[in-house]
């Protein structure tokens, strides 16, 4: 299944293993189990997992958590925006599920080098499933062809299917245990339980 080059194989499984570890932490915390790690020169420099329930902010996906960790670090070290951009261009992301449209856009804006993901995301996927935001010029609109290419980033290499079954089985665990924060429009509101 994994269309990964032979010599990258073992490393890929290792890195995805770290990402799956993060996803398991999310599952334990009753979050949708997605996790990721970001690497620079083969070294893990940040990790993240879903925190949408805890924060009540549905944009706090694993990728956003890891990205924020890096930016905080680099800002603390007084890196300039162009140095930060340079760093991102050497970064590789391993994430257990295909980045959604939001995260795929964010990764394009940051100019990340490569993305490796586990299972595809056939509802929200932004790296091929629904939209293809990893291509610099995937835009379907005719308006775009005349515009300068550099204005919309370089795009990034994206490969899926690495340990996809493990990622899917975590989702299955999650949906069996139920999402405590899913909307329940017909239920009396939680506020009443606390007097």
């Amino acid at each position: 299944m994994a269309p990964v080059e032979e010599d990258h194989c073992e490393d890929s499984y290792n890195y995805m293993g770290f990402a799956l570890q993060q996803a398991k932490l999310a599952l334990e915390a009753l979050e949708v189990p997605v996790g990721c790690v970001i690497l620079e020169d083969g070294k893990v420099i940040a990790s993240g997992r879903n925190r949408t329930n805890e924060t009540r902010n549905a944009s706090r996906h694993a990728e956003m958590e890891a990205i924020d960790e890096l930016i905080r670090q680099w800002r603390k070290n007084r890196l300039s925006p162009s140095q930060v951009a340079e760093n991102f261009s050497n970064c590789v992301l391993y994430v257990t599920c295909e980045p959604c449209i939001m995260c795929a856009s964010a990764l394009s804006f940051l100019g990340i080098k490569e993305v490796y993901y586990g299972c595809a995301n056939d509802k929200f996927g932004g790296c091929g499933s629904i939209l293809s935001l990893h291509f610099a010029n995937s835009q379907s609109s005719d308006l775009i062809s005349t515009r300068d290419e550099y204005q919309r980033g370089k795009g990034y290499k994206c490969i899926g299917g690495i340990m996809a079954e493990e990622a899917v089985s975590l989702f299955k665990c999650f949906y069996e245990q139920g999402n405590p924060n899913a909307p329940k429009p017909h239920r009396p509101v939680v506020q009443r339980e606390r007097t």
Partner: peptide, 19 residues
């Protein structure tokens, strides 16, 4: 995509964030 092109003054309070 243009966030990194801005001039940067490290002396300032720097809460910038590309996203």
């Amino acid at each position: 995509w243009q966030w990194s092109l801005q001039p940067h003054d490290t002396e300032k309070c720097s809460q910038w964030h590309p996203l």
